[in-house]
Amino acid sequence: MRLNLVLELLDIPGQLMDVLGPVGKLGANIVTVIHQRDVKTERGTVPVQITIEGDEETLGKVINTLEAQKIQIMEIDGVLRKETITTILIGDIVDKDVKNVLKNFHEVEGVKVADFNLKMSDHPEKSASKFIIEAEYGKRRKIMKKIKEIGTSYGFLVINEV
């Protein structure tokens, strides 16, 4: 069987070899490699498309090995991998309408709110709410910026991840 992967590599010499070496060693056949150094992600890394061929067990081993080497896999067979983003808002969210805030978050491209927690305070303006967001891989910074914009527009203090 064949597997199409999109990997995210650092733009430094030797990175591609570090990936292709182990793939070959595990017995998988490398069908194609598309490596365009001038196309970069927002983190300055280079997305590399590779197609590999082998039996299911071998391909599974390849994925595990790549992950163990901390090589980011952005896509497997056209399916984007997700990453989670946690954000905390401080402010009276009950008064500001939770539903609208959630709706606005959902409207951001590539975003799904996976979890929502509320901790009320005796002073409503000091209440805190936590959002766990599932985002498309590689869009983290853009999404965090957008979430901050939305939260700030409601008058919340937005605490994003580093």
């Binding site: 946690t86 905390i88 401080i90 927690n117 901790k119 009320m120 305070s121 000091k126 209440s127 805190a128 709410s129 936590k130 766990i132 203090l157 605490i159």
Partner: peptide, 13 residues
């Protein structure tokens, strides 16, 4: 403007 409520929510995660 940081509140104990926000810190406790963060800690849970």
């Amino acid at each position: 403007k940081i509140t104990p409520e926000s810190i406790s929510l963060a800690k849970k995660e």
